[in-house]
Amino acid sequence: MRHVLEFDSIRLSFGGRMILCDVYMKCETGKITGLLGRNGQGKSCLFNIVYGELRAEEKSVRFDNVSVAKGFMRPDLLRFLPQFDFIPKSFTISRVFDDFGLDYRELEKRFPEFASKHRVAVGKLSGGQYRFIQTYVILKAESRFVILDEPFTHLMPLQIEKVIELIREEKENKGLLITDHLYRPIIEIADRLYLLTDGKTHPVRGLAEMEELGYVAMGR
């Protein structure tokens, strides 16, 4: 079944500086929506507002046309991968999988580097593996939409490939919103792209439009 997540009318300012003022984004089941933007443009703030973690002066977040103010109260609708490590370091991988209702054997089968590590605390994993586990559980857990804030951070190229593969797989039954500073993989996998600049979202199609908006510098 197709579901739609839309948000607009979001206003956010810090100390008189307007961060977000004219935002519209739409995400659907079966589609990957990418958000790009320079540092400090408010990408993470925007996703935190949609998730309900950050309070905005105004906002409208709708799931299938029904307004939901606190997305974090509805993991069946939305799960969120923040840009930092969020799983308590003392938790074992099997404990995390159990909490998220996932089968650890599936991970072992697909990614042999995690074989017989189910009793290992996530804090004992390498930085890349720790990040990978966090991305994996958020992507795989039951939900209609997933927000991924910098899922490629701390990952080596091989792991990035694996995450891209997982994202493509999960796209079949979820809607995905994704942002990262590694813009090339985002451009590669996104069905719809937005660029956030000066507090506004601009739908963009390719690198040329991004260059026009000052996000990338080509041919220099």
Partner: peptide, 13 residues
């Protein structure tokens, strides 16, 4: 503060 995202992702406010 960061760990609260874990609980939120599991529906615990």
């Amino acid at each position: 503060a960061r760990e609260f995202y874990y609980y939120h992702n599991l529906g615990v406010s």
